[in-house]
Amino acid sequence: MLITTSGVTFILLGFSEYADLQVPLFLVFLAIYMVTVLGNLGMIVVIRVNPRLHTPMYFFLSHLSFVDFCYSTTVTPKLLENLVVEDRTISFTGCIMQFFFACIFVVAETFMLAVMAYDRFVAVCNPLLYTVVMSPKFCATLVAGPYAWGMVCSLTLTYFLLELSFSGNNIINNFVCEHGAIVAVSCSDPYISQKIILVSATFNEISSLVIILTSYIFIFITIMKMPSPGGRHRAFSTCASHMTAITIFHGTILFLYCIPNSKSSWLMVKVASVFYTVVIPMLNPLIYSLRNKDVKDTVRKLINNKLFCPTL
């Protein structure tokens, strides 16, 4: 039975215990968010305007950038607001909607990285069949999967959150409406909701990592069999950016899982959550652009055209 939630609000404590750091933190997070927006939207534009980048790898990368932009935009504006205002309340509907969209995009990113690992596996291990296997229709299906599964997971978890009861003002010791913080202030038994998210998170993490690790095991074996050192170097360089993004993303998730559930660990949870929700969406476009000659060349041409041919 759905519980009535009229008059229920949440208070996001965020980093309010560090009063002297509110302005510096605001400036830091604002700068990170600006880089995130410019980096991810810029990556999408660069991929669209350069015909050389109209390949499956960059098709997946453009969707990763879109997911990162949406994920950061779901969380960061409210974080910035709470750093400069006294009233840190968020309505029940606002809190649930933030969780709903954040859940969609984090699950989508988890499996988008797995899809990109599969793409690299086909490119390195079956280069002659790459264009046949990674057809436009198949690529569209591979991209639709993470979004669809993210929606299924988010709807399921949100449904069980709405089954819980809440009353009055509820203090959330975080800057984002994440599942654990919401169920912690519930008036009813959150056992089922907690078990559902445990099963969902474990399945998503293990299944995506199995795809990624299996793909890279075969990639590594194939690369080591290459007779040419130059060929091995090129193969490794095409995978380096993706491996870096995977390591940062899944490393942060696993670190969050390992933090003990105690009051003394809340600061570590907040710091890890900042890295997970705010910093990673900024890092991904930087990782892929700084290590990619085609992307850097396209950006350079766009800048030169804007500076020296502004009327064209």
Score class of each variant (00 low, 15 high):
Lys137Gln: 08
Ile217Met: 11
Ser16Leu: 08
Asp20Val: 15
Pro127Met: 05
Leu302Gly: 00
Gly168Met: 07
Val133Cys: 08
Val35Ile: 13
His179Met: 07
Leu12Glu: 07
Pro136Asp: 04
Val176His: 09
Asn173Arg: 12
Ile219Ala: 05
Ser262Ala: 11
Ile211Glu: 07
Pro260Gly: 10
Thr238Asn: 13
Lys78Glu: 11
Ala148Asp: 03
Ala148Tyr: 11
Ile223Leu: 05
Val67Asp: 04
Gly168Thr: 01
Cys187Ala: 15
Cys125Ala: 04
Met112Tyr: 06
Ser65His: 08
Asn126Tyr: 15
Leu267Asn: 06
Leu79Ala: 12
Ser273Gly: 04
Tyr147Ile: 04
Val274Gln: 00
Ser208Gly: 05
Ile104Phe: 06
Trp149Tyr: 09
Ser186Asp: 00
Asp189Glu: 12
Ser200Trp: 05
Thr74Phe: 04
Asp294Thr: 10
Asp119Leu: 10
Phe111Thr: 00
Thr4Gly: 13
Ile32His: 02
Glu109Arg: 13
Ala240Phe: 11
Val45Ile: 14
Asp119Gly: 09
Phe138Tyr: 06
Leu30Gln: 07
Leu213Arg: 07
Pro260Met: 01
Val106Asp: 03
Leu161Met: 03
Val152Gln: 10
Asn82Trp: 04
Val295Thr: 06
Val124Gln: 09
Val35Ser: 04
Leu267Cys: 00
Glu178Trp: 02
Tyr71Leu: 08
Met243His: 08
Ser62Glu: 05
Ile47Gly: 02
Val185Phe: 01
Thr222Pro: 05
Tyr18Pro: 01
Ala114Cys: 08
Leu128Ile: 03
Leu79Cys: 12
Met34Ala: 15
Leu2Met: 14
Glu81Arg: 11
Cys125Arg: 00
Thr298Asn: 11
Ser65Trp: 03
Val274Trp: 02
Ser193Cys: 01
Met57Ser: 14
Gly14Tyr: 01
Leu161Trp: 07
Ser289Tyr: 12
Met57Leu: 15
Gly145Thr: 13
Ile197His: 02
Ala108His: 00
Thr158Ser: 15
Ser186Glu: 00
Asn304Ile: 14
Pro260Asn: 07
Arg88Pro: 03
Ala144Tyr: 02
Pro51Ala: 10
Tyr191Lys: 09
Glu205Tyr: 08
Ser265Ala: 07
Val84Leu: 14
Phe138Glu: 06
Ser208Phe: 10
Ile11Leu: 13
Val67Thr: 11
Ser228Cys: 02
Thr202Glu: 02
Phe308Asp: 10
Leu155Cys: 14
Ile3Ala: 12
Ala31Lys: 06
